[in-house]
Amino acid sequence: MEDCVRQINNGINQITQSVREIQKMGKDGEERFAWHESNVQSWVSAALTDATTCMDGVLGDEIGSKAKSMIKARFLNVKELASNSLAMFNRFTARHRASLAIKNP
């Protein structure tokens, strides 16, 4: 469980870094947009991997089935939120690029 808590804390840090990076996207200009985009995608993906790894470890531990079910449900919720956030972010960046293409054909 200690490894799992460490992975979840890493995931929280990665999501926090992603939020900070998104805030920088509009301030640094277009030349840094792709850099920020890549950082956000990497960190959210890493947080998603951490949650998956942790969940896999918990499911293999010797804990009660009720506690295991509760933990699994929460991890699945975290995974779903991270996955949806990444999808929405990717859609945002695609639309941003498309709007630039319209403005600067």
Rank of each mutant, 00 (worst) to 15 (best):
S83K: 13
I15T: 14
A51P: 11
L100W: 01
K103S: 09
K27D: 00
K79V: 07
E30F: 04
I12W: 09
E21L: 06
R20K: 14
E31K: 00
D56K: 13
D28H: 06
K68M: 03
E2H: 07
G29P: 03
T52V: 08
C4W: 08
K79S: 12
Q17G: 09
T93Y: 07
A87Y: 00
L59N: 07
M88V: 07
C54H: 04
S45W: 06
T53P: 01
T16R: 13
F89P: 06
M1V: 11
E21G: 06
R95M: 08
G26K: 01
K27Y: 00
F92A: 08
T93N: 09
R20Q: 15
I102D: 08
M25R: 02
G57N: 14
M70H: 12
V78P: 02
M1P: 08
E80A: 14
V58G: 00
L100Q: 08
K68D: 03
R97F: 02
M70I: 14
G11E: 08
L86R: 12
A98D: 11
L48G: 02
A87W: 04
S83L: 09
E2Q: 15
K24Q: 13
H96F: 12
D61F: 04
E2P: 02
K103G: 04
S83N: 12
C54M: 06
K66C: 03
K27W: 04
D50W: 07
S65Y: 01
L48P: 05
A73S: 14
T16P: 02
I8R: 09
D50C: 11
A98I: 00
R97N: 11
S45D: 13
I22Y: 05
N104H: 11
F33D: 04
A34I: 07
M88S: 14
S99W: 02
G29D: 04
V5L: 13
M1S: 12
A67K: 12
L86W: 05
D28L: 13
R6N: 10
G29I: 00
N13H: 10
K68L: 01
